[in-house]
Simulated assay, not measured.
Amino acid sequence: MKRVKRSKNQDERIVNDPFTNLANDMIIEILMKLPPRSIARLHFASKESSSIILDKKFIQWYMTRSLTQPRYLISLHRGGYMQMQLFQSLSQDHPYNHNMVSYEMEPDVLYEFTPPVRGLICGRDFTKMIVGNPSTGQFVSLPRVKTRRQDILSVFGYDPVNDVYKVLCMTVVLKRSHMSRNGNAVSWEDIVSEEHQVITLGAKEKWRMIECEYRHRHNSGCKGIYKDGFMYYLATYQKKRSLMSFDLSSEEFNVTKLPEDQMLQQYGELVNHAGKVTIAYQAYNRNVDLWVLEDANKEVWSKNFVVPPLSIDFFGRFRDLVFMGILGTGEMIFASR
């Protein structure tokens, strides 16, 4: 057998590697102070640094530290013949520091992203899906959703019991069987989601079909949210708008009734307000009504409202502000109409 000679450059790299000359505690302390993008680069620097960074304890420590230093995630979209989607992730404390990360998506694919979960986001364009970290600019593709359906809802979340990330997808399609014998169309409220499937992120990831005992249809155009091991999304159940929940550990569904409020039944979107599942909508009087879920088991809701400030443009005219969402810090986002 021919003996393979070790290159001098490889020997020099090992000798000059600072991680081999420092104690693990000191290395961890140094790594904990680095921004996410630097951590991502050091993962490929050496075996020593990679083993520390990929260790579950270090990941948990770094995640805990990162949650105390939230970041803004800005999405820009330019339409036209060539679509473009640009993400920028920057510190809330120092929004213009050198740690700002920009990432440009594929020019021919327009992803619709779920709200961030523990620093990761999930994007979908019909059956094509990606998951990534906007703070580092690293994204990976998931297997395509197994469906030919037209209306798809996807929700991204984290299973704390098994320490894994999962994506839930539901699909529905209008077809000939939705026409009655006398030729009249079946009510849209009678149509339910036909497929429920889950994928667990990992080395051998693939979509799995699961059963749901509640015949419901997810509301098109509404986004789901994640909170404490559960996914939440709005759906039509027994011809009424309801709140669906999905336990990421047991992979079981549950349904919660909404208050008997006409506006709530027609409008509103899910948000995480002050750590609670909330349905928010902007009423005709400009106020933002917040229906907060206080107890899911007892179906107890409370109602608050927020009066947005008046905005004056460059010409001294008053402009209405439109509610756009809520940050993790509890701050509300408004944009000029």
Rank of each mutant, 00 (worst) to 15 (best):
A185Y: 12
K5M: 11
P309Y: 07
N24S: 08
I39E: 06
V117G: 08
V155M: 03
N16D: 14
S49D: 10
F19E: 03
L110P: 03
H77A: 10
E299M: 04
S180M: 14
V292Y: 00
I52W: 07
L270R: 01
G268I: 00
L201T: 06
L258C: 02
R176L: 07
N21D: 09
T136S: 13
G330R: 05
D93H: 14
F19L: 04
T200Y: 02
N24G: 02
V192Q: 02
G119V: 03
L34K: 14
V277P: 03
M179I: 15
I30R: 02
K57C: 05
V307D: 07
R78K: 15
H98W: 13
L310I: 13
E189Q: 09
F126M: 09
M263D: 12
L310T: 09
P95Y: 15
M324K: 14
R286G: 01
F246D: 00
L310V: 11
E294M: 11
L248D: 00
R6E: 11
L270V: 05
Q265V: 06
R13C: 09
N21H: 13
Y237S: 01
V173H: 15
G224I: 03
N99T: 11
G229I: 02
S249M: 05
S187I: 05
M179R: 06
L67S: 13
K223G: 07
L293Q: 10
Q282K: 00
I312Q: 08
V271M: 05
Q262A: 11
